[in-house]
Design a protein around this nucleic acid. Structure first.
Lengths: 261, 261
DNA sequence: CGTAAATTTGAGGTGCATCAATTAAAGTGG
DNA sequence: CCACTTTAATTGATGCACCTCAAATTTACG
C-alpha cells in the first residue's frame, strides 16, 4: 500500500461480489455466480479514498489491481514541463492498474491515479492475477474486451487532440462522460433534468482535451449562453444533445461495450 | 474482400507459419511449434498491397484479421472537416483489424488502413477467431498483451498531442518508429549509418502528431540543421539520439513488449 | 518522359496560451 | 455554525506557436 495516500479500509461488512451493483460492468462480469465466492477470496479489501486524493503515482510499484466501485477517478501522466494529461476517466466498474513499465509483475504503474470525488475501490494483489486466470480462463477474454474498449476511447481522444478545435473536443468529452454515467443507470443520472453529477474541474477538462482551463471556461460559457448545457456546482445538464453530438462528432454507439467474439 | 483495394494473393509457395520471420512479434508467438501447422489452416492467404494503397476503409465490414508480414502500414481515421488522424503505424508482426463498431462479428472497422510502402499481409477470417481461441486458449493472453502494448503507445501519442509542442512531438515519433524498426533487427535498419528505411511522408507525420505538413517540414529542417537527424529519400538517420530523447521525452523501455502475467 | 505527388519557402492570420488580478466557492478548524 | 484558508471560477489584455494560403521546385512513378 502506498503511504502517500489516505486510503482506508472500509468498515465491515464489505460488499459481497455476488451482490456487487457494478458487476455487469466489471472484470468478473462473466464469472459464474457459483464461482464468485471463490473469486472473492482473491480480493484484498474494499478501500475508501477522499476527494482529490492520489491513490498511486506514476512509477509506484504496482502491487494491486483495482476496480472502481463507487465515485469518479482519473488516470493521468505529468510531464517535465508541468503539464498533465488525463488518460482515462474512471467510473464505477472500471478496471485499472495492469499497465506497468517493466516486464513481469515487479514493474511500476505507468500513470498516476487520483480520486475526483470520494471513491470506493476493490483491490486484489497483482500477484494473484495468474492464479485467477488459471481458475477462470474466460477472464482473459473479458480483460481483452475491456482493454479494447479503453483503447477505443483513447483513440477517440487522440483524434480529438489531433484534429478537433476546442469547442469540438469539449462537446465530445461532455457527451462521452454524460453517456457513460447514464449507461450505468444509477443515482448519478437524473432523468427529469437530463443531468449528471459531474466532479471534474475546468482544469481537469482542460488536461483531458489538451486545453488551458481558462479556454475551457470560455467554451463552457459559450455553450451555456447558447443554451446547449448548464454546468455549475458539480452538476452537468445537457440541454441540446443533438447540437452537441453534431459539433463533437460523438456517437453514443462508440462507447457501448463490444464483445471480442 | 474489399474491391476498393488492389489486394493480390501472393504467388505460391507462401511462407509457412513455422518459418515465419516475424513470429517472435506476432499473435501466435506462444503457440507451440507442433500446433503451427494446424493454426496455418485458419489462415486465409498472404496478400500483397502496393504502396499508398488502401486495404480497407472505416466502416467496411470486418471480414478479416490481419498480421502485417512485411512493409509499413497505418491505421487512420478521417473526420468530416477533412483532417486525418493516424492512430497506429504498423510494422511487421503487428496485428490489426479486431476493433469493430458493433457488437459481435458483423461490425465494421472503426478505422481505415493504408500501406505506406509495398506490403505483405497474412489474413484470417474474423469468424474463425473463436475456434482458434478454443483450440489455443493462450492466444487470448497474447492478444491482451498486444492490446496493452498498443494502448500504451496510443496513450503516449495522446500525451504528445495534448501536452507537447511540435518539436517534442516529432522527436518522440521519430525515435519511436526508429526504435520499433531497430527492435526487429531486419534489413530495414542499417547499423553502420544508424538509419532506417522511413516511408512516411511529412503529411503522414503531421497527421500522426496533429500538425500541418508545412510545420512538420520546418521542424525537420531545424532538426537537420542542428545535426540531430538526416531525413531524405525515405531514409531516416538518427545523429544525436540523446538530445532527441531528451526533447521528445522518449524512453526506449516504453516500447518494449510487456507480459501480462 | 510526362504527370502527379511531395517537398520547399514565404507571407499573413488566428486559435489558443499565458499572465495578472478579482470574485466565488469549497474545504477546514475552532 | 462561523471565520479562515485554499482552491476553483471568472474576466481582460497580450503574445506566439502553429495554421492557412499560394506558388516554386524537386522527387516519385507508370
Amino acid at each position: 500500500m502506498n503511504n502517500r495516500s489516505k486510503l482506508k479500509q472500509c468498515p465491515d461488512p464489505q460488499t459481497e461480489c455476488k451482490e456487487c451493483p457494478v458487476r455487469s460492468m466489471a472484470l468478473f462480469r462473466d464469472v459464474p455466480e457459483a464461482e464468485l465466492g471463490w473469486m472473492q477470496e482473491f480480493r484484498d479489501a474494499q478501500y475508501q479514498l477522499p476527494a482529490r486524493e492520489i491513490l498511486f503515482q506514476e512509477g509506484d510499484t504496482a502491487h494491486s489491481l483495482y476496480t472502481l466501485f463507487d465515485g469518479w477517478m482519473i488516470l493521468f501522466k505529468t510531464l517535465d514541463n508541468g503539464k498533465r494529461q488525463i488518460l482515462r476517466f474512471l467510473l464505477p466498474g472500471d478496471f485499472f492498474g495492469f499497465q506497468v513499465n517493466a516486464i513481469g509483475p515487479t514493474g511500476g504503474y505507468i500513470y498516476g491515479s487520483q480520486a475526483l470525488m470520494k471513491s470506493t475501490l476493490c483491490a486484489f494483489p497483482t500477484i494473484r492475477l495468474q492464479a485467477m486466470i488459471e481458475k477462470q480462463p474466460q477472464l482473459t477474454i473479458r480483460l481483452s474486451e475491456m482493454e479494447m474498449h479503453d483503447m477505443t476511447l483513447c483513440q477517440y481522444h487522440l483524434i480529438g487532440t489531433g484534429c478537433k478545435n476546442s469547442l469540438e473536443r469539449i462537446a465530445f468529452l461532455l457527451l462521452e462522460l454524460f453517456h457513460r454515467v447514464r449507461l450505468q443507470r444509477r443515482g448519478d443520472y437524473d432523468e427529469a433534468s437530463n443531468s449528471i453529477i459531474f466532479p471534474p474541474t475546468q482544469k481537469d477538462i482542460g488536461d483531458a482535451v489538451g486545453l488551458s482551463s481558462i479556454h475551457v471556461h470560455r467554451i463552457l460559457k459559450e455553450m451555456g449562453s447558447k443554451g446547449w448545457i448548464r454546468c455549475q456546482g458539480k452538476r452537468l445538464t445537457i440541454l441540446d444533445e443533438e447540437t452537441l453530438m453534431d459539433i463533437g462528432q460523438f456517437d453514443p454507439g462508440m462507447i457501448l461495450p463490444k464483445s471480442l467474439i
